[in-house]
């Protein structure tokens, strides 16, 4: 057990904000380092299971391990411990303040120390869990600007989908962008839903990480078979947004194939007993994102469908 501080900051009264990592050093020779990072958003807990599961497995396989595995289970421990998505008392999303800086205030300072600590790893994996509103199939999201480098790295992670999305300036303040821009490869996993743990997804990702480590020469032993992912770009992803406010009730199953025009769900009005809106799939495809939280407003994202040749 080798728990280390990445950064520590005194809070106002009798406690420190400590970002910690578990450094697992193999007994076998090797210098490669892989970083497993999660908990940027305090309401995303899927990565907690993966961090725990991976540490348990690797603790038992130190003789097979070459090099170093750094597990960062929570970049935002105050958020996780208070059931808050963001950094308590701070306006900006933590995943919009990277690469951080010593010259700014406490949260940006912490962000800067995190980047400094991960910098130089052979691979980093930043695990997210959507939010409390949407349930996601296990997927890896890659900015189109880094696709050539990252897509080959992402294929072994046992996820259903690799989504290559368009570049946006605002995304340049994410942890993944900051790391990739300094030459530290970072893959972003999105899976499951906020405030819950989907054990099946966590087990799949854990297997994928072990497989990837084996292929990188960091871990000896049998390589488990993994699912080949669907690889898609924005052009094949369509969105369904509510146009009415009310209570969303799904009629299609998350992860199922839907047909163009099929009703994915309704927006209900419990006050009158009326259906305010029927939400239909814009195309044939895989329902890889589906609304989990029933309260919706005009504009709330209901689903994403992946079309094209699946």
């Amino acid at each position: 057990m080798n728990i280390r501080d990445v950064v520590r900051v005194h809070l106002p009264i009798g406690e420190d904000l400590a970002i910690q990592k578990n450094r697992i050093i193999g007994n076998a020779p090797g210098k490669k380092r892989i970083c497993i990072i999660t908990g940027t958003h305090g309401d995303e807990l899927e990565g907690q299971y993966v961090a725990w599961s991976l540490a348990r497995i690797l603790n038992e396989r130190l003789d097979d391990l070459h090099g170093i595995v750094d597990i960062y289970p929570s970049l935002n421990p105050l958020g996780i411990s208070t059931i808050e998505r963001g950094l308590p008392g701070f306006d900006l999303d933590m995943n919009r303040i990277f690469p951080g800086s010593d010259e700014f205030s406490a949260n940006e300072y912490v962000a800067g120390k995190i980047v400094e600590d991960i910098k130089g790893a052979d691979l980093s994996i930043d695990i997210h869990a959507s939010n409390i509103f949407l349930r996601e199939l296990p997927q890896i999201r890659i900015n189109e600007k880094t696709a050539d480098t990252l897509v080959p790295m992402a294929k072994d992670l046992n996820m259903d989908l690799i989504w290559i999305h368009s570049a946006a300036t605002v995304l340049e303040s994410t942890l993944a962008w900051s790391l990739n821009s300094i030459g530290t490869p970072c893959l972003v996993v999105e899976m499951g839903v906020g405030m819950r743990i989907s054990k099946e997804y966590g087990d799949r990702l854990t297997t994928g990480i072990l497989t990837k480590m084996a292929k990188m020469g960091i871990l000896d032993g049998p390589v488990m078979p993994v699912f080949p992912p669907i690889i898609s770009t924005d052009g094949y992803v369509d969105y369904i947004n509510a146009n009415q406010s009310g209570i969303f009730m799904p009629e299609a199953t998350h992860g199922s194939m839907v047909e163009k025009g099929q009703v994915v769900g309704i927006v209900a009005d419990p006050l009158t007993g009326h259906v305010r809106e029927k939400l239909r799939s814009p195309m044939n495809g895989l329902l890889f994102t589906l609304r989990e939280y029933p309260v919706v407003y005009s504009g709330s994202l209901i689903a994403r469908v992946l079309g094209g040749a699946l």
Binding site: N243, S245, G246, D269, P270, Y297
Partner: peptide
């Protein structure tokens, strides 16, 4: 303005 939630006024 857009659709009001059932128990609220329009935004």
């Amino acid at each position: 303005s857009f659709s009001a939630f059932p128990y609220r006024q329009k935004i």
